[in-house]
């Protein structure tokens, strides 16, 4: 048990280290000079430009050698200090991110959790109904093969523009301020629905197909055949099959997390939904590399944490890993 956990933890730490390093490197190799951008925006006289450049370089910590910048970056990461945003200067990056996070989570968590649950239930259900199986399978494959962006655009066009049922930009109306009033909540849900639906649908297709195939596989497995030969009612055999088919689906969720997050970034952009994804777009357009860095750092930590949670859940639900680990230590 201990050895297993130590190994897992080591992998997480290594991944974190590499990801943070890459996160630090990439913006520095992006074309363009953010300080220059800010200076030219300000339209200053020549002497003033030099003074301001010195000030900005110092403010962003760019006045020290590269290796120091890298070390400083690590120190800052552990202090939760992600620097100052260029584009929303002088707002700290961490503040900007924290304002966007709730929107991202409000999309991501319900879409992922609900699609996983609903997809698994539906897939298992379809596996034993021929007509459903024949209709679900093509639809599921189609949904699952649809890039997030396409489905987002399609939904935005159909229900937003053509039918006009839903708004297609923002998290709430421009004339509203966030509050806990019923009016605001309804308005929020109204804006939330389309991006949620497009995230949900793509994932739902994938889980449903995966579950359907796994349940069929489990029902053909030797243990199911044995139980059937002993006259066990179908209910118990199906219960076992569903339970065992769920295990690879949990692993699948861990493997998919990165893809899902990438999908939600794209979806936020399509619907101008003010979460981390949309923020990344803004940051790139404004060459705000501290902000880009901060957003990616946040995503890295988020995905790693979510993975850890799924790993732990897996250990709890699969006796084989649990017992296997005991034997090892």
């Amino acid at each position: 048990m201990k050895r297993y956990l130590t190994r897992k933890l080591a992998i997480y730490i290594l991944t974190f280290f590499l990801a943070v390093t890459i996160d630090w490197v990439i913006p520095r190799f992006m074309p363009g000079d953010p300080v220059q951008t800010m200076l030219s925006r300000a339209n200053l006289r020549a002497e003033a430009v030099e003074v301001m450049r010195g000030y900005y370089l110092k403010a962003f910590g760019l006045d020290v050698p590269v290796w120091r910048q890298y070390l400083n970056f690590w120190v800052a990461v552990f202090h939760g200090d992600l620097g100052v945003s260029v584009y929303l200067f002088p707002k700290p990056v961490s503040r900007v991110i924290m304002e966007a996070v709730p929107y991202s989570l409000a999309l991501l968590i319900p879409a992922t959790v609900l699609s996983w649950i609903a997809g698994n239930k539906f897939g298992a259900f379809a596996a034993r109904r021929k007509w459903l199986d024949n209709t679900l399978l093509p639809v599921g494959y189609l949904l699952n093969a649809t890039p997030y962006m396409w489905l987002g655009i399609l939904l935005a066009w159909a229900f937003g523009i053509a039918l006009g049922w839903f708004p297609i930009a923002g998290a709430y109306g421009f004339d509203r301020t966030p509050s806990l009033s019923l009016g605001f909540i309804l308005d929020f849900l109204w804006h939330w629905f389309l991006p949620f639906a497009s995230l949900f649908l793509v994932q739902f297709g994938g889980w449903a197909i995966g579950m359907r195939n796994m349940v069929i596989y489990e029902l053909e497995a030797d243990y199911s055949q044995y139980l059937e030969a002993l006259g066990t009612p179908r209910g118990l055999i199906r219960r076992y099959a569903f339970r065992n088919a769920l295990l690879p689906q949990i692993t699948g969720l861990a493997l998919q997390l990165g893809v899902i997050v990438a999908g939600s970034v794209v979806t936020e952009i399509v619907f101008s939904y003010p979460g981390i994804g949309y923020l990344i777009l803004q940051a790139i357009q404004n060459q705000d590399y501290f902000l880009i860095q901060g957003c990616f750092l946040f995503i890295i930590i988020g995905v790693l944490l979510a993975n850890l949670v799924v790993d732990i859940v897996y250990i709890v639900v699969d006796p084989r890993t649990r017992r296997g680990m005991m034997g090892e230590s």
Binding site: A221, L227, Y240
Partner: peptide
């Protein structure tokens, strides 16, 4: 296939 005849998660 008696070796695999038992549900592995029970």
């Amino acid at each position: 296939q008696a070796m695999n005849a038992l549900n592995p998660t029970r």
